[in-house]
Design a protein around this nucleic acid. Structure first.
Lengths: 205, 205
DNA sequence: CCCTTTCTCTAGTGGTCGCTACAGAAAGAA
DNA sequence: TTCTTTCTGTAGCGACCACTAGAGAAAGGG
């Protein structure tokens, strides 16, 4: 266990690590992993390169921490919708609706960092593969939630859980890219609404 | 008018320009614009850098020609579906179905070059903006096709053409990204099928 | 043959990439 | 104060980036 209150021995850090991380998140979020250079990062974070490397490791490690913190800080709405709504249908309807809002929120980059931060095979490192795995993981969460509702009789027994989960994930990914292309909140909310029409109705209890 | 049969004066080109362009298309398609270096291109195309610059201009011009040729050579299925099918619903159902097939075809990169070749604000140049405009243009084509069917009484008069077009575009974009993430043809066909359930039925003539 | 034209090859250009050696600055410990 | 520890700023590392100057090679025209 690390003692979080222990006074550090040497010269104290001259910047707010968390605030600097948040600026790094915004930079990666806006420009993507490859297109954000270390020089861009040090400028956005207001620190020198050696401070960046001392505090965060290398560029890849900083990106990984940025992604982790992004998911907690900005991407939590999907997890909340899944956790708080009573049914899969309600949860994913809310996730889609909130995605339209979150992906177009003024004052921050549009779209989703996890969905849009890497080009195809973006780098020799496995950064792109790691984000792809996170996207697939989300589809798996959707599918489990749908399966639970089928088992509980909330969704019809002939529902294709995997297809419905993957379809919903595809719509969210498409919404993220469209928000980056400049599409506004109202249009994306209409996309979310249209997507829910592909869902089977809940069977009455 | 340029005379295409005139014998060129100097030393003839030692490579097949069209075959080299096709290799460039595949390289950009697989790795994206930024991540494909000129060294990668010369290797894939089997020519030296000066030959590349003489035949195609600079990297950006080569990419633009690659995109144009890609659309003709590999991305034509959407235009064909729109042109050949009798209704908007049939056209976009076919486009989605064929996207599942095209985006996972063995022996070539997965997904769509226009959708997936650039990270967010990929470059200082306007390459990313140009691709975004092409994506939006496609959504506009979908919308016109849907409007025509509403006017013809094939789709219900309360159909939201813009929303339905944008939704369908979002699904195609999501399918492209998922195919890059390794999702297979059968799963994407299920996504296409699910998406069409969001469409209103055609009103019988 | 020689001349002109165009392409190809070698070998670089300056610039940016991610990253770091090193010296000095700022803190606690003694 | 002096020592130790840790961070910060300068300055620059080798590698790669997109791109090209210059010399020679390969064609047609005379």
């Amino acid at each position: 266990m690390v003692d979080m209150t222990a006074k550090p021995r040497g010269r104290p850090r001259s910047f707010d690590r968390d605030a600097a991380l948040d600026q790094a998140i915004k930079a990666f979020w806006e420009h993507g992993y490859e297109a954000t250079s270390v020089a861009d990062l040090t400028r956005a974070m207001g620190i020198g390169a050696p401070s960046l490397y001392a505090a965060f490791g290398d560029k890849k490690a900083l990106f990984e921490e940025a992604v982790r913190t992004y998911v907690e800080r900005y991407g939590g709405f999907i997890g909340r919708a899944l956790a708080e709504e009573p049914t899969a249908r309600a949860a994913l309807a809310r996730a889609l609706r909130e995605a339209a809002e979150e992906y177009t929120r003024p004052g921050r980059p549009h779209g989703c960092l996890v969905i849009s931060a890497t080009a195809p095979a973006d780098t020799a490192t496995d950064v792109a593969a790691s984000l792809a795995a996170m996207r697939e993981h989300n589809v798996g969460l959707f599918e489990s939630r749908i399966r639970a509702d089928i088992a509980a009789g909330v969704l019809p027994p002939d529902t294709d859980a995997a297809a419905l989960a993957r379809f919903t994930g595809a719509v969210i990914q498409g919404m993220s890219q469209q928000s980056r292309d400049g599409v506004g909140r109202a249009e994306l909310e209409a996309v979310a609404e249209a997507a829910m029409r592909a869902w089977p109705p809940e069977t009455r209890k």
